[in-house]
């Protein structure tokens, strides 16, 4: 990623901006060229991409891998679902309570987990996720248990799938921008310091616990937005949103795309969602294909898709410069 390795005419910053513009353009054009199913699937990928980004904020920069973020994602979705189906509240109330529930849970989770590290952090967050899943399964009056909550409907202006697609695209773009701001801020720098050595950070006078907690709540904020989008996209909320599988899948997206990058988790989300939904039509044993992709990635591109492409690009540029 060093600037020295690149020819002077095109700076890496320019390339990144160019790629971003291309991606947005492709995103804009999709509903005009693709079929309805591709649009609906892409919407799902955008939402999972945002969810993966929220975990990545904590895992990729703060070095804290949460296995229970589906709990936050799920609680926000249930917040919307509960208000919509049980109290017949309007969209303002749905959004407010969805967000409030997601933030409250991430604050509680953060307080519980902020004093732990490494494998202990994994265990605490795993347990948090399981608690939400267990409650979703058993708190019948609130969550509808196994049968879930129906009666969540999209607002009129995003009723059609392609309209909702644009909404998801816009929300993802804004959130990705915000995450970039957070990562580049002094707080983001401290977050990265946490990952490298929290004792050293504590020595220099930073509050480790405070930074972890704020990082957790910020990450929970984005996970809640993803959960709310998910509830409206599906127009149905069931315990499967909060199950461990949802967290695990998002982590796979991050690993596949590239840990600690902004575009990686979104790319990973697109790959996984499309393999699940599109490739599964052609190949009955699509989980095997997924497994193969992962093995290949681990063997040849350990830093994920983005890391692998960057390495190839750097090698190509260097080769062009050398002779």
């Amino acid at each position: 990623m060093t600037a020295i390795a690149l020819p002077r005419a095109v700076s890496p910053g320019r390339i990144k901006i160019g790629l971003l513009v291309l991606a947005l353009l492709a995103g804009w054009a999709l509903p005009y060229v693709a079929g309805p199913f591709a649009v609906a699937t892409a919407t799902l990928a955008l939402i999972y991409g945002l969810f993966a980004l929220s975990i990545n904020l904590l895992a990729g920069y703060g070095g804290l891998l949460s296995l229970g973020h589906a709990g936050i994602f799920g609680v926000a979705a249930y917040g919307v679902g509960y208000i919509a189906s049980r109290t017949e509240g309007g969209y303002g109330a749905q959004l407010f309570w969805g967000m409030a529930a997601g933030l409250a849970v991430s604050l509680i989770f953060g307080v519980m987990a902020m004093r732990t590290r490494r494998v202990y952090f994994l265990m605490v967050t795993l347990a948090q996720g399981m608690i939400v899943y267990g409650l979703a399964q058993s708190l019948e009056p609130v969550t509808g248990a196994e049968n879930g909550l129906t009666g969540v409907y999209r607002p009129a202006f995003v009723l059609e799938d392609w309209q909702f697609y644009y909404l998801s695209l816009a929300v993802l773009a804004i959130c990705a921008g915000l995450i970039q701001v957070v990562v580049r801020s002094p707080f983001g720098l401290a977050l990265r310091g946490l990952a490298d050595s929290d004792t050293r950070l504590a020595m220099t006078g930073y509050s480790v616990v405070g930074h972890r907690l704020l990082g957790f709540v910020l990450s929970g904020f984005f996970a809640s937005i993803a959960g709310i989008l998910y509830a409206y996209n599906n127009e149905y909320v069931s315990p499967s949103v909060a199950e461990f599988n949802t967290s695990a899948q998002a982590i796979l997206m991050i690993i596949l795309g590239g840990v600690g990058t902004l575009s990686g988790p979104v790319i990973g989300a697109f790959v996984i969602v499309f393999v699940q939904n599109v490739l599964s039509l052609q190949i009955e044993r699509w989980p095997t294909v997924m497994g193969l992709i992962f093995i290949l990635m681990v063997l040849f591109a350990r830093n994920g898709f983005v890391g692998g492409v960057t390495r190839l690009w750097n090698r190509y540029v260097r080769r062009r410069e050398e002779p």
């Binding site: 309805p36 609906a40 799902l44 799938d161 069931s238």
Partner: peptide, 16 residues
């Protein structure tokens, strides 16, 4: 065997 996947596939059957 998953309601979310089922919904997505049902949407595909209806729209595509």
């Amino acid at each position: 065997s998953n309601p979310s996947v089922g919904l997505n596939k049902a949407r595909r059957l209806i729209t595509s």
